[in-house]
Design a protein around this nucleic acid. Sequence first.
DNA 1: GTCACATTCAACATCATGGTTGAATCAGAT
DNA 2: ATCTGATTCAACCATGATGTTGAATGTGAC
Lengths: 123, 123
Amino acid sequence: MVESDPPRLDAIFRALGDATRRRMLRDLSAGARSVSELAEPHEMSLAAASKHIKVLEGAGLIRREIRWRTHLCRLEPAALASAHDWLESYSRFWNTRLDTLEALLRAEDAANPPPPAKPDPKS
Amino acid sequence: MVESDPPRLDAIFRALGDATRRRMLRDLSAGARSVSELAEPHEMSLAAASKHIKVLEGAGLIRREIRWRTHLCRLEPAALASAHDWLESYSRFWNTRLDTLEALLRAEDAANPPPPAKPDPKS
DNA sequence: GTCACATTCAACATCATGGTTGAATCAGAT
DNA sequence: ATCTGATTCAACCATGATGTTGAATGTGAC
């Protein structure tokens, strides 16, 4: 759970690190789409869009179902969920007591005695 | 909110797409760390680790505070939160009614009349 | 068979990423 | 001034990501 499937998380986060692919996911969140439908809003060749879709598929973020000529793509919730879960493990850093956290960190600094002086190193 | 800061999200998700950097974030979640402390568990040169840290910093995932010789790094909750928020917008896909979602997608397929035949294209 | 359609494949160019090494920087301690 | 320590910088290299184009595939319609 902590770092159970690193390769999968790698692929998932990398896939999410591209605006084109994120928009595709958003479009898919409104319902299943064919490859060309997914490619349409993006100013790039179909081949390029096809590659993006393959990246999403490789990360397990989408699933594709081939019906005659067209490939129907749909969101795969599980992969999105694992990215979400990973981030969730850091939720204590923003959820509640965010200010308390700051205080804790500063307390830790005080415990880790910082060399006293040098209040303004620049200028 | 929908795609407010694409470059930032790009950087954040890409930074998360590397196991080395994720482990650094995990270590940082236990408290502030110096560059060499962050680098230590990883079998790579300090320079390489330094680059990873710079990627995290560039994505706004961490913040660094320079005190005399050592650079103290700490988590920056806001950036993690924006990644979390982005994923949150897809939460309906895993939160509740995950099975209902499946049903909805299949209903949509029924509405989007699939060319009737071809029940088993393979074999 | 031939046409049109949806999608992929292959080859290519380009740029980013992740790693190495060795020198450079910068600040205190001696 | 010199030494040590923490970190970065500058080449450099190998690999992968992203885009292009043009040909190939597979399947239903004419």
